[in-house]
């Protein structure tokens, strides 16, 4: 809709919008997170939800104890290889549209435990991540910043057309295979349909 016409109409007391804007407005202002934490990042997440930082200002204060009622999974903390299948399972149980925030160095890449034998090298191997928040742990303000970044992303998502959001693509998977426990690592160690890093060549 033409911006000039819209402002002209609003001056006359007529509010005009599109279904897409209305949908995205509702969607981004009530992102209910899943109530689960994995490590110290969860403490910062809890702090963000309390009075001092007050995540309620952004409509995300309703932490749901069930994945069926949640829109956002905040992967807050170290994902061990033992825990990773459960995290993927929780993601699979969430209804669309669903979003994932990888909070902290561990959830992004394994962080300080990357070289360990028991820590997953980033949750984006198994589920699609919308926002990465670096930090160890990120402060509550950083989580709020990540949430605002997610809200901006939702505000600009399209409902139709070839570039529409993942939730509206019929062929895009809403569930991802849950890895099995292997003798040394999870099998498979990564979802290659999802996790395709660019080849890195050292230039030393």
């Amino acid at each position: 809709m033409d911006e000039g016409l819209r402002s002209e109409l609003s001056r006359q007391g007529i509010f005009a919008t599109t279904i897409q804007d209305l949908y995205n407005w509702g969607c981004r202002n009530s992102i209910w997170p899943l109530n689960f934490g994995l490590a110290c990042c969860a403490i910062e997440m809890i702090a963000a939800s309390m009075a001092r930082f007050d995540i309620a200002r952004f409509g995300a204060e309703v932490f749901r104890p069930s994945p069926r009622q949640a829109d956002l999974m905040i992967v807050a903390g170290t994902v061990t290889k033992k825990m990773a299948p459960q995290v993927v399972r929780l993601y699979n149980q969430m209804p669309e549209p669903k979003y994932v925030i990888a909070m902290g160095a561990c959830a992004i890449s394994g962080g300080p435990f990357k070289r360990g034998y028991n820590v997953l090298k980033g949750i984006d191997r198994y589920v699609p991540v919308d926002v990465h928040i670096p930090g160890c742990p990120p402060c509550p303000e950083a989580l709020l910043h990540g949430l605002i970044a997610l809200q901006k992303e939702i505000a600009s998502q399209k409902l139709t057309g070839p570039s529409r959001a993942r939730a509206f693509q019929e062929e895009a998977p809403g569930e991802f295979p849950v890895p099995e426990y292997g003798p040394y690592d999870l099998v498979p160690a990564k979802n290659t349909d999802l996790w395709r890093p660019k080849p890195i060549i050292r230039d030393e």
Binding site: K81, K82, K114, R115, Y117, N118, K121, Y181, G182, P183, Y184, D185, A189, I200
Partner: peptide
Amino acid sequence: ILMWDEFRDYPMRKDYVEPDDYEYE
């Protein structure tokens, strides 16, 4: 208790050889 049941080997032993899964740093 900490590792999964299917895990082989005992990771805190001094001669434990970690799997060769180095990633870019």
